[in-house]
């Protein structure tokens, strides 16, 4: 094998007598290598991007909810981007409880006013910020945890009436999705 490896070196030696042959050769090799690398990267991108959400998935990224039938103290769950969104019409006591908490003592400090557009309506993504379970508390008989909001059965996270984490392993408050009130009885989420 040692013999047959020699011509490769001989090629380098062969190029030298012609002045700057080696330099030109090295430059050519680098240029070709760079072009090949650009080509390979350009091929990789479509394959990677194809795994991102497709156009039909993105088209469903907003949903309109009719909230007229929801009574005070009731909650509904709607599906947005394949995830549950909790829409709760809070009672006066629940609003008061959410507002009077000392914000700086919270694990994820956030005043209630920053989490709602109308105090009566709390809209949060119903996915626990710990590991993605859906917390309980939407239905009448559900446990609502120590703070009257939601309780995640997977690892025991307690959320208050503003959807803020109060106790348990979850690191952050329930996410508030982007939404607008289209009319008084209709909300567009996303």
């Amino acid at each position: 094998m040692a013999d047959s490896a020699n011509p490769a070196q001989a090629g380098g030696a062969h190029a030298n007598p012609h002045g700057d042959g080696t330099n030109r050769r090295d430059f050519l090799f680098m240029l070709t290598g760079a072009a090949g690398a650009v080509g390979a990267a350009s091929v990789a991108w479509p394959l990677i991007d194809s795994m991102n959400p497709a156009a039909d998935v993105l088209a469903l990224s907003s949903t309109e909810v009719n909230i007229a039938p929801v009574e005070v103290g009731q909650a509904i769950t709607v599906v947005w981007r394949g995830k549950p969104v909790f829409v709760r019409r809070r009672t006066a006591e629940e609003i008061a409880a959410a507002e009077k908490v000392a914000v700086k003592d919270l694990p994820d400090p956030q005043p209630d006013s920053a989490r709602v557009k109308k105090p009566e309506w709390l809209i949060v993504v119903g996915v626990c910020t710990h590991l993605g379970c859906v917390p309980l508390g939407q239905k009448l008989g559900d446990p609502r945890g120590d703070y009257g909001g939601w309780f995640c059965p997977c690892h025991g996270s307690h959320y208050d009436t503003s959807g803020r984490i109060r106790k348990g392993p979850a690191p952050a408050n329930l996410e508030v999705p982007g939404y607008v009130f289209v009319t008084d009885t209709s909300v567009k989420i996303g």
Partner: peptide
């Protein structure tokens, strides 16, 4: 194969979805 649906009712439509909606499909 990540985008295709091997079912007689959905295969044709899933290929069209690849052609139209999947990024670079």
């Amino acid at each position: 194969a990540m985008h295709y649906t091997p079912h007689a009712d959905h295969a044709f439509a899933s290929v069209e979805r690849i052609m139209r909606d999947v990024n670079y499909g």
